[in-house]
Structure formats: structure tokens, C-alpha cells
Design a protein around this nucleic acid. Sequence first.
DNA 1: CCTGAAACGGACTGTGCAGTCCGCTTACGT
DNA 2: ACGTAAGCGGACTGCACAGTCCGTTTCAGG
Lengths: 173, 173
Amino acid sequence: MTELRADARRNLERVLDAAEQVFAASGPDASIDEIARLAGVGHGTVFRRFPTKDDLMYAVIERHVAQLHAIAEEALAADDPGEGFFDFARRAAELMMTTPGIHKCVVHCGEKPGAAELEELGRKLVSRAQRAGALRKDFEPAEVGPLVRAALLAAPPGQWRRYLDVVLDGLRT
Amino acid sequence: MTELRADARRNLERVLDAAEQVFAASGPDASIDEIARLAGVGHGTVFRRFPTKDDLMYAVIERHVAQLHAIAEEALAADDPGEGFFDFARRAAELMMTTPGIHKCVVHCGEKPGAAELEELGRKLVSRAQRAGALRKDFEPAEVGPLVRAALLAAPPGQWRRYLDVVLDGLRT
DNA sequence: CCTGAAACGGACTGTGCAGTCCGCTTACGT
DNA sequence: ACGTAAGCGGACTGCACAGTCCGTTTCAGG
């Protein structure tokens, strides 16, 4: 059951690649039809693997989340909690903003994908920085991410760094 | 031509009121049908006055923009340019966040409605504060609004004040 | 009143999407 | 080579919505 036929695996790959491209270009409003077309399969094939458009979106997002995970662990190991947090924010932003459409997808899904662990990591990162006095204390760890992401989304294409700076400065004590 | 029949004027009123309510509740995704139903008219009637959903949205927004206009003028008359700007931001946010759905509509329309004058006012407010050294200089006047609005939208229902604080602090020099 | 223009409203059209279904095709174990 | 289950794809359904059309109703001026 878990073993996929060779052609099926190939198609699955193609679908994920196509989905990544299309979501990156059009954000969460991308249509399954377009993805299927680009992948060169019928859209029925897409729905067989991913019963729901959101399922497909999660799958695409999960690929990206893996990378974030690594960055977060590293930041958590930093000596200075404040530095750790701000570094993570900057590097995570760098990563996400290479594919703004997917960033929109993340916002659209409201975390769900790798929620469990990654969110936990973020929580630690934030509260550690707060305890060290590097960060405003009147924000829940879970609120920081959405605020930063919202600011990033508001920025014109190449300009998000300045927007990030403003929010990070505002979060400093 | 400009004279509207009595019943027509009555219906127009009803439609605008209903639209305000519905847009306030559901943001830009509200459907014309729902508005028409609430107004107690057929949806054909709505489309006769407002050929396009966006036209209706603009009309609703314009009502709100008028109030902003007054606040902006007042702020521009303040002695301290910095105070003027921050006061305006806070009072404008207060106004917009009483109807978050409509705030979303404004974001959706990207300014268009009272653009001409109001945007000019905002521009003056920002650049005056920048010249006075109260505000970061690496932001175009036109960029400030969207950034602030994005942060407001990211806030959970009653919590936007803290989010606004962060962004305003970040914009300070 | 009575009439014609203005306004009405809802049936209708067209579009774009997610998600389902089923007859056909293809991989792959024997 | 061949039988069969896994896989395929596109026709189909259902829905929500914006926007149009036109036969009917209502207002307002003479």
C-alpha cells in the first residue's frame, strides 16, 4: 500500500515541483488546474494524492519548513539570546522572501504544517530573548511571527528588508 | 438625470447602509447578493447604481475617508510635527479598527477612493515629521500607510494597539 | 386619474473553481 | 506474455459569485 508504482512516484514528484512553482508565483489562489497542466498530468491525478487543495499546499510548505527548522535550531544554540532571535528572524525572512507566493501560503494556512515542532522552537527563541531582556515582554511568543510576516507581505517586491528592520526595532526593548 | 425618484433615493440609502454593515462584517469578500438581501432589494437594483462590486466598495469607503480627512487636517496643524504624525496614526487606527472588515476593503482597493487629497495629506504629515527628525528617513511617505495597515490586520481582534505601538516605535528615529 | 418614463427584481448567463467518478491504460509480478 | 490491480485523466457535478436583461411595478407631472 505504501509502495508507489514507478510512474506514480514520478508524477507525484512532478506535481510537487509544479505546485511549488505555481504557488510561488500566484500564492494561495493558484488553481489546481494550472498546477496539473504544468505538471503534465490530469487534475484528477493531483486530487488522488492530495484530496484537498490545502493538503497540497501543506505538502509544498513542509519542504520549506524543513529549512527553517535548521536555522531555528542553530539560532537557539547561539550564546546571546537576543542575537539568536534577531538572527533567526533575518535569516528566516531571507529564506521566505525568495518565494513570496509561498510566504502568502504560510500566512493563509496559519501555521498548521510543521506547527508542532517549529512553533515550539519559535516559542523558545522568543521567550528566551524576552527573559534576557532583549525583546518586549508584552507579546506572546506566538504573536511575533504573524506580525513580522504581515510586515514582510506589505513590502514592495525588493524592499522587505527595511520593513523587517522597522518591526524588529519596534520589538526591541 | 441627477434627480433621483423618491423610492430610488430610499433604496440607494438602504443599499449603502447594508453594504457598510456587510463589508464591515465580511471584508471585501462579501457578496452583492447578501448586501441586496439585507437591504431588502433585488441585486439588480444594486448593480444599477454601482455597475461593479468595487464601485460599491469605494462608495462605502468614501464615507469613512471623510472622517480621516478631518483628523489629518487637524494633525497637520499641530505644532510638533512628530506628535502630529503619531497622533494621527493612533487616531486613524482607532477609527479604522472599529470596522476591521472595511479596513480590509481599503487594503484591498489599495487607496484608490479618496486617494488624491487624503494621500497628499498623509504625504505631508510624514515628510514633515521626517524633516523634523522624528521619523526614519528611509521610508517614502507612501510606504508608511501600508506598513501600518498590514500590522493592524495581523493583530488578533482586540489586540491591535500593541501591534501599532511596535510599528510606530520602529518608525521612530 | 392616467400615462410614460424611471425604477425594480429576479430569472438568466457566464466564469472559475474544487472535488468526484469511471472507463481506459500501464506497470510489474508471475 | 499476460492478467490484474494500481494508476490515469478528463468529463462531469455542484457551487458561488459577478454582472445582464427584460417584463412588471411604481412614481410623479399634467
